[in-house]
Amino acid sequence: MENRAHALSAGLFLVLLCVGLIFVAIRLNGDTADQQDYLLVSRTPVSGLNRNAPVRLRGVDVGKVKDIQFSASDPHVILIKIGVDKGTPVNQGTYAQLSYLGITGLSFVQLDDDGGKPAKLVLNSDGIGRIEMRPSFFDQVGNSGQELLRDTGQAAKRVNKLLDDENLEQLSLTIANLKTASGRIADLAAELQPTVKALPAISTHTDKALARMDPLLANLNTLTQEVHARVGTLDRIGKTADDLDQTSQDLKDSLPQLHVMVGDFSRSSRTLDRVLSDIQQQPQSLLFGKSPAAPGPGENGFLAPTAAR
């Protein structure tokens, strides 16, 4: 009886162990009937990512990794097939990145979206959607580190070239010259110290001189106005002189004509004098005309004058 009890206990333990193993296997494999497959396309290494690795959407477990393989058309491309629970909000703006589980070195797929494309992701003819795989934070840091190291190397080479023996000698001379120049500047500052102390007195004298200059400037302004007035008068006198000169020139041009007019007037006066003399001697000439002149010698009707006895 005791052997049978031990055998029954052992058999019951074995059955419970099998059931537990089956339950754990089901839990580990998950129920794939209610999952949607998506294909992640990565051009960066996926170190630490294995099959059955979890898939999380903003930190929430939504599926697992089903398969990892290289692309048949491009060996630099890695294709990662994941299963995501149906009803998970996957849209056209959703992208994937690798995240790491603490310090274990294992990684998982982290899904996220920036909200720029809220439309639902369209599946291809095989019923699988393609999601962009972006470089992880550590990949970006690694790339930046490589660029930083390359730039640092170039900078070190340039520094070495800059700090060669010849440039170091020139730099030493420059530092010595700067030291000498700074000493001279200190000496110059010491020499200028009395002048700086005298500046307040000079400023006071300058203020007084400026105060005395104000009346002088006022007088100079008045004198300037008077000079302007006199210059205006001289301008008017000059204009009058120009007019007189023009008049004199016109008069000079008219003198020949005036001389001719005076001659004509003189001849006309002599003719008028003769006419008046004739009228005075023969007033009847105004009515009967001028009497004919007495015949002269040799003319008809000439009478010689009788000699006085």
Rank of each mutant, 00 (worst) to 15 (best):
R184I: 04
T271H: 14
N160M: 07
A307P: 06
S269T: 04
S254Y: 04
N29T: 13
S47N: 10
T271I: 11
A119Q: 15
P256A: 11
L106N: 12
F13G: 15
G183Q: 00
A229L: 02
P283Q: 03
R212Y: 11
V46T: 12
D126Y: 09
G93H: 02
K208E: 12
Q193H: 05
S47V: 12
A7E: 13
G115E: 07
V15N: 01
F137G: 07
Q284Y: 05
L216D: 06
E299H: 00
T206H: 09
P305V: 07
L251F: 03
D37L: 04
H76Q: 15
P283S: 05
K252M: 07
V90T: 10
K179Q: 07
L106Y: 10
L303Q: 09
T195Q: 08
L123K: 05
V90Y: 12
Q97F: 01
L286D: 03
G232E: 01
P297W: 07
D250S: 11
Q146T: 15
T222R: 01
Q284K: 10
K252T: 15
T152P: 01
D151A: 14
L210M: 00
Q35G: 02
L148Q: 08
A33Y: 10
S71P: 08
P297R: 05
S291F: 03
S182I: 06
L303A: 04
Y38G: 01
R158I: 02
Y95F: 15
P295V: 00
S9I: 10
I202F: 12
S99C: 01
V231C: 11
T104I: 04
A5P: 02
G83V: 02
L303W: 05
G83P: 05
R150P: 00
I26D: 13
G102I: 00
S254P: 03
L123G: 01
V260W: 12
P200E: 08
S71G: 09
T174R: 13
G142K: 13
L57T: 01
T44Y: 09
R56C: 03
T104S: 15
L217D: 11
H259Q: 11
H6N: 12
S172I: 03
R130F: 08
